[in-house]
Amino acid sequence: ATSSSHKMADLRCSGCAAGGLSFNSRTFTKMLQSCQHRCDHHRVLLEAEQRYREELCQSALWSSSTHRTHDKIMLAPVRKDRLHTEK
């Protein structure tokens, strides 16, 4: 019954190789992002999520922006530290 999950584990992606609960909802994305050998499955997921995040960031910044004088900055790719200063 677990053959489908083992198939992907063969690819040595850290998202696939990390067993059980060695990461959690807070750390999983960071772990995948730092993985050098992402499998297709996780690469596609991560890329889609990243694009989604960027779109969400932009729309959030747009709606929270009351000063249109910074329009050009808002249209530039959103840097993480604009959102949040915590490490």
């Binding site: 999950s5 992907m8 696939c16 990390a18 067993g19 609960l21």
Partner: peptide
């Protein structure tokens, strides 16, 4: 002992 890969269940 968890052997199922949680990372596949995103």
């Amino acid at each position: 002992k968890p052997s199922v890969v949680l990372g596949h269940f995103i």
